[in-house]
Amino acid sequence: MDLSLKVWRQAGADAKGEFKTYAAKNVSEGASFLEMLDQVNEELNAAGEDPIAFDHDCREGICGLCGLMINGSPHGPQSGTATCQLHMRKFSDGDSITIEPWRATAFPVVKDLIVDRSPFDRIIEAGGYISINTGAAPDANLIAVAKEAAEASMDAAACIGCAACVAACPNSAANLFVAAKLNHLNLLPQGQPERYTRTVAMVETMEEYFGSCTNYGECEKACPKSISIDFIALMNRDYVKAQFMNPVKTGQR
């Protein structure tokens, strides 16, 4: 099939970007969306033009590096699918496709379609872990975890950190990502000791970069792992609880 692409080009963080239109000729149905871009890049390279820069690596929907706003849909039209798993058979001959980077104040464009998502790392560094030094762990089966809890935790832990939730959110809120990361740990017995300090640390770090949640629910729809906004509610609950549960050094003046 033949397509016409309208792609955001931006030389660097400070450069001013613009849309450029390219033709993608005889793209095969079976090709993935990123392979279609590879093909365009081959032609650009042959024509002596700078190829389109976009983030990707695993191409299996697990590393979370890919992520494009495709015709106004984060990761494209297919739900529960990362950009790299989207295949061209979802498009038809003659379509014109607008391809843009994620947009949010916290995600400056690095080049073309690549944005800087490192605020997500800052949030994890603020407390998205269980403090246990190597070698200090007890036998794994000393910790019984209800199957339901393990499953729920895994549902949240499936997050690939792609930031489509932020891209999708009209408020540029990262609540779904942070809720997923929090509940992965907060739902497990191992996560309890730091549960409330973790919650405050991650939430307030999040709020330094991102907007607030009006419960629009777009993030859930955009999420390639279909992570539920119920986790956002749980995060809100834990954040309020944290106001009372967090150690206030009793007895100290």
Binding site: I130, D139, A140, I143, A150, S153, H184, L188, Q190, G191
Partner: peptide
């Protein structure tokens, strides 16, 4: 396995 479990890796149960 002990280390990963203590870190909160949600292994199947």
């Amino acid at each position: 396995i002990d280390q990963a479990t203590a870190q909160g890796v949600p292994f199947a149960r």
